[in-house]
Amino acid sequence: MLPLPWDRELLGHGGAKLHCVTWVHGPVLALAVLLFSACSNVTSYGVPTRTALVSSPGGTAVAIFATREPTMGHELGIVEARGTLSDISVEVLFPELVRRVQELGGNALVLDQTDARFEQVTMWSSYQEMIPCGSRGFCTAWQVVPTTHEEMFVVLRGRAWWLPPEVP
């Protein structure tokens, strides 16, 4: 006889405690998947190291210095943008870094580091299993197993910079 949905725990043949399926598992899992898929894979921050004397308005053009430091102006803070999974392209990460520069009141970005690193990430996944139980029935059991996979993180790091207006 198949277990009823509210029969939470049964003892299997080996004496192991089995968790049988309940009606709530499906919707909860679906909701969790939906929440995870809606999350952005980009994180960023800007840390001020010096107060901007003249704050540049949002949307100000930001000059980029990717291979050298400007000879004028001064540093305002450190900025970083990192992405993983589907958000590892420079098209996604670079505008985020520029936005952080603008937030700190900068009008230039000194790009110090563009790099990637790889991490082993362990996630717990569950699957359903039919196991003989009782005289001629089957129990549905949830097995939870760890799965490890590699994730790539792309990191752009730099400094927000304030450049004085050009003298004509």
Binding site: T67, V90, D115, A116, R117
Partner: peptide
């Protein structure tokens, strides 16, 4: 392409640089 950085993983590899 200057300032090229390369990183090697088990399932992917990544390179980025500055176009000049």
């Amino acid at each position: 392409v200057v300032k090229v950085r390369f990183a090697q993983g088990l399932t992917a590899a990544h390179a980025v640089g500055v176009c000049v």
